[in-house]
Write a protein that binds this DNA or RNA. Structure first.
Lengths: 339, 339
DNA sequence: CTGAAAGCGCTTACAG
DNA sequence: CTGAAAGCGCTTACAG
């Protein structure tokens, strides 16, 4: 089959009997500015359409220095939270004429740094990152290069980079207070041993909220699972934890996956919810609606995180000089009960 | 803050006292080929490292005509199936030095066509697409342009485009036969009214497999929900369907989401699984492990779809001339039981 | 009112 | 053994 050749500005110019620069001006809506006659302008536009002209984006990028591509670096694109994030970002980017290249760090800082470098070399116009430990330096370099960056869901305390965060502290606080209001007295907390800010904030909030309401946090009430736990191991560990602490009447699971494992454990142990045990899960999508009713969910507004992040990025595009402005934006969490 | 300037090949050349072309040859490992002395070669390499040289990918692309970017067009990146697909494709692409730009069609053919055009204009080297109706023409154009394309999960009968498909027909067949073996006599089938090949195949397999085993498919046994059904409506409709057909002792749900709604319906109706009712779900991830045991799952090997697709794409990169070869590749489904 | 020229950063024949 | 030149397709001052 004969391959179609794509038409260039030159091809049009030749056919129209004008200079390439004239074609360029017309097609970029700068005909008036370049004082090109309406006759020439119309003729060129018509020809471009007839010949099926599509500008070569690579050439435009090289010339203008803008690729209109944004780099999205997340922990794992196949995870529901990040997938939802990616979708919202795609939608927002689409409206603004940007495309997204995505990469997953697998929570490996080393890989994350490499991805940043690769994307930088690919000349992306800006970065949207859910950073992992070890990426501080590389992100600093981005700033030094003048590349717009927005962090999502996490940030590095002390680093001056715009970030959209979930109000983890108040989310957990509201969840715990919800349980307290309902009359629960001994609330356990299950989390993972990641030392990411947002996880630490959740644990801190658990402890402080209990104290605030006159409870003394029981050391036995806190379970920290290894991040690398396989599902079976996690279910095993949570079951053992609940069995070993029969006096607890509620459990707060600090992440989506922990909540799922927790519910499996509870099912396995034959406990009832919310009769015997109340449960709060920190979550981002509605998987929990499929389970026993009566679970309290602290919902992360993923779409809002993504939208806010895009706004912060676009603001940076407008001001070449970094202005003083809100560096950290918090999106609020929503509490709801599964039915 | 002073912005860092990125270094170019010229900068290195000036500092090293050689020509830009020499630097280019050295840095592209063509020093031997260009018969450049080891001394010069080493000096240039060292300088490049010291100065933190990163080639400008846009310039390379313009010159070579290769962007090393692949376009991934799926129905909805936030959907678990496509998110998993995206992750595997990312992993494979990473190994091969490619980046992925993703786009969601929302199953809108018009939008899908626009996305193809946008990506073409962005000069992506190849396309990985889960096509929706209405994209045939635009995909044909891609072929005419000589752009490598692989379809995933779906295809257009009659169109000669490489595709990786799930063996839907045999998957459903195995699932139904599994139920028959277990002694179920009246098997219902719940699907959506999309006229995509893969969905039609599933329904056809349901009907033919029943006949094959001497059962007469009951007209009442087939429920086709509107694709646009909201969760509540779907649960409502499935509940009504099951109630209206009490003689059925098993239900096959043709998609992941239908399975979830189906289980909710069954829970709502107070029916027991697999005692009163056996269930088979067509699925791609392990959400069902969280439910009542005894559900049979026909699992779509997402990773395998993605890997095969990448292979088919890479084969096209090798042969500039389209060779005769396997156009359709089927990946096998796995049957397993939730515990 | 319009065209010729320079240049974005690179690679690749080609000349010496 | 190495450099000068052309060119990928575009845009943007600048000259007429």
């Amino acid at each position: 089959m004969a391959l179609m050749k794509s038409v260039s500005i030159k091809d049009i110019a030749k056919k129209a009997g004008v200079a390439p620069s004239t074609v360029s001006s017309v097609l970029n809506g700068k005909a008036k500015q370049a004082r090109i006659s309406d006759k020439v302008s119309e003729a060129v536009k018509l020809l471009a359409k007839e010949m099926g002209y599509q500008p070569n984006h690579t050439a435009v990028s090289l010339r203008t220095g803008k690729t209109h591509i944004l780099g999205l670096i997340v922990e794992d694109i196949s995870n529901a939270f990040f997938a939802k994030l990616a979708k919202t970002i795609e939608d927002e980017a689409y409206k603004l004429g940007y495309k997204i290249v995505y990469c997953s760090t697998e929570n490996d800082g080393e890989k994350g740094c490499e991805l940043i470098r690769m994307l930088l070399y690919r000349q992306v116009d800006g970065f949207l990152i859910t950073p992992s430990r070890g990426m501080e330096q590389e992100i600093d370099k981005l700033i030094a290069f003048g590349k717009p960056v927005v962090l999502m869901d996490r940030y590095f305390p002390g680093q001056q980079v715009p970030a959209t965060l979930v109000d983890n502290y108040n989310g957990v606080k509201q969840g715990i207070e919800h349980l307290i209001e309902k009359g629960y007295k001994k609330i356990a907390f299950v989390t993972v041993d990641l030392d990411q800010v947002q996880m630490l904030e959740r644990t801190r909030s658990y402890q402080e909220t209990l104290k605030l309401h006159g409870f003394t946090p029981d050391e036995n009430g806190l379970l920290q699972l290894p991040y690398t736990s396989k599902p079976e191991m996690a279910v095993e560990a949570i079951s053992a934890f609940i069995s070993a602490n029969p006096s607890f009447d509620a459990v707060f699971f600090a992440t989506n996956y922990l909540g799922i494992y927790g519910l499996e454990s509870i099912k396995k142990l034959g406990l009832s919810i919310p009769g015997h045990l109340a449960v709060v899960c920190f979550d981002d999508h509605d998987i929990f609606r499929l389970f026993t009713p009566g679970i309290t969910i602290v919902e992360q507004p993923v779409a809002s995180i993504a939208q806010t992040a895009m706004q912060l990025l676009m603001e940076q595009f407008k001001h070449t000089i970094q202005e003083e402005g809100p560096i950290l934006k918090h999106t609020r969490l929503i509490i709801r009960e599964s039915t």
